[in-house]
Design a binder for these strands. Structure first.
Ligand SMILES: [Zn+2]
Ligand SMILES: [Zn+2]
Ligand SMILES: [Zn+2]
Ligand SMILES: [Zn+2]
Lengths: 142, 142
DNA sequence: TGCGAGTGGTGATATTATAACATCCGTGAT
DNA sequence: ATCACGGATGTTATAATATCACCACTCGCA
């Protein structure tokens, strides 16, 4: 992610929150920045480390609270199978993203609009779906 | 799961392992039994508790090693979003199961054969997919 | 001025998972 | 029989992930 597109993404996030009547506070903004800067899913405790040198040494609850907020706002997704977090450039409120994660380089691509499952149990109503595909991206194929 | 079907499942697991040249040892068998008995995804440390009264008080590595074995054998799946484990009645080696988990009663239904994603990034090759749907089963719908 | 909601700081703790090394046990070669 | 080996398990400690409980600050507003 280039410096310019990072700045644009942060501005977009700012107005996205404003539109929801919520505030992208300095801590939240800094965490989002760190997640967007990374070129792979980021661990919560890596964020913690990265925040240490800052104005206040962050403790775990600070980071997790920021991540919770950003996830609720649709600005960050959790990769459940990795216990790690990725930035989202789409800012969609529904958590229904489909992630393609390269096991070699860590790059993550996000897609949307997957059709409903074909073999759903009778009468089941889906509220939230976790879909994570692991494999090799075009750059890393042997 | 009834007593009878539990016994059948354990026997099937036994021969499934034998066919792979592997052994369903007492610890592994006991862990599988506990996972199959449960009517919801089970946490590793709940298994640990359940094994305490047994012949030897189990320690974490014992449980995680048994779970690793059972997952590799396709007898147990991990629900990544819950850090919990469910038994599998299909004993398929590929980990590609699609899970439907009821957030009310905890019941889990497993399906297979989901079609490849429609919007896959160009050139991406999938090795392993995590697909977990959370919602409400037919019994728990309001 | 005096709330009250939202936010973040802080210390402690809970939960989930693995590393590192020792021991035991069955199997097959010598 | 005995030895060597690999697979499985036991044991101790620790790493990695996440939450609780409580307090302090701030801002908008009655
Ligand atoms: Zn997204
Ligand atoms: Zn790659
Ligand atoms: Zn299965
Ligand atoms: Zn249900």
């Amino acid at each position: 992610m280039t410096r310019d597109s990072l700045i644009r993404a942060l501005e977009a996030a700012e107005s996205h929150c404003a539109g929801r009547g919520e505030k992208l506070t300095p801590v939240r903004r800094r965490v989002l920045e760190l997640v967007l800067e990374a070129d792979a899913p980021v661990k919560a405790y890596d964020l913690l480390e990265a925040l240490k040198p800052g104005p206040g040494a962050a403790k775990p609850p600070t980071v997790y609270r920021a991540l919770d907020f950003l996830m609720a706002a649709g600005l960050v997704h959790k990769v459940e199978a990795l216990n790690a977090f990725v930035g989202c450039s789409h800012a969609h409120d529904d958590g229904g993203a489909e992630l393609f994660i390269c096991s070699d380089c860590g790059s993550v691509e996000e897609r949307h609009g997957a059709p409903d499952p074909v073999n759903m149990p009778d009468g089941f109503v889906i509220e939230r779906s976790v879909v994570e595909h692991f494999g090799h991206c075009a750059n890393c194929r042997h």
